[in-house]
Simulated scan of single mutants.
Amino acid sequence: MRKLKLQVQTTVDGYMAGPNGEMDWMTFPWTDDINAYLDALTASVDHIVLGRKLAEGFIPAWAAEPEGEDKASIDWMNNTPKVVISNTLTESPWANAVVAGGDLTEIVNRLKAEPGGDLITYGGGTLVSGLIAKGLIDELHLMVNPVAIGAGMPVFPTEGAYQQLRLVTARPFDCGITALHFEPERS
């Protein structure tokens, strides 16, 4: 069965965005060691799972081939098929992306049961909260930036967030980010 991995940028105090969606607190430029970690993380992945709001910015941004990103990352982001989870869209306005609507648990369990490599999600906030609350994430990769912002969009939902996690690795990188890899403790 495929795994669903979460990779999310977060602040030390647990936010994935500021109160108005700000992400200017993220640490850049990244160093070769963090790029190698992320390459290894995505090596088994063959689908990206996104929420609609994130997809609206994420997919066009990568399609525009952002300056400062290496060609291999751009190609991977653009060529990897995407599933956009949305109950408002009925069809995808993007190439290489399909829309899945309905019950989140049913959608994710169906995707996990399909043949293929692992799945990865980068968010957004509503999707991440729902996935965590329903216990659907198999691996959490929190990229902790060395900054606290005090308020914003939390990685973990306020309801349904309780779950025991097992730390697999904690790895600091030269750019200052620390990757925390957790797996849920399941009975």
Rank of each mutant, 00 (worst) to 15 (best):
Y122D: 00
G124M: 08
R2T: 00
M143K: 04
T80A: 09
W30N: 13
R171L: 09
L89G: 01
S92N: 06
W30V: 11
E65I: 09
N145M: 14
T178S: 07
A179L: 12
V144I: 15
N96P: 01
L140A: 09
S92T: 04
V49A: 01
A113L: 06
S44E: 13
I48A: 03
T31H: 12
N145P: 02
V168D: 11
L180Q: 08
Y162R: 13
L89A: 02
D32R: 11
V147C: 02
A64L: 04
V84M: 11
G150F: 11
D118F: 03
A97P: 04
N20A: 14
D32A: 15
E114I: 05
S92H: 03
G135N: 12
I34Q: 07
I59D: 02
Q7M: 13
V12P: 00
T10S: 15
T27D: 02
T80M: 03
S86R: 13
W30Y: 13
W30A: 11
E114W: 04
G160V: 02
E91R: 00
E185Q: 14
W25L: 00
K112M: 00
L6Q: 03
V98T: 15
G123Q: 05
N109C: 06
L119H: 10
A55C: 02
A148P: 00
L38W: 07
M1C: 09
G116F: 03
A133C: 02
S86A: 11
G68S: 08
R186G: 03
K112W: 07
L127S: 02
G130F: 12
R171K: 15
V83F: 05
L119Y: 06
T105M: 05
V108E: 01
V108W: 01
A151Q: 15
L142F: 15
G176Y: 09
A40R: 15
D103E: 09
E114Q: 14
I149R: 06
V128E: 05
E65D: 11
M16L: 14
D174A: 15
A133G: 01
R166S: 14
H141N: 14
E185W: 08
N96D: 04
E139F: 04
T90V: 14
A63M: 01
G152S: 06
Y15A: 08
I149S: 03
A40Y: 10
D138Q: 03
E65R: 15
A36H: 11
K82P: 02
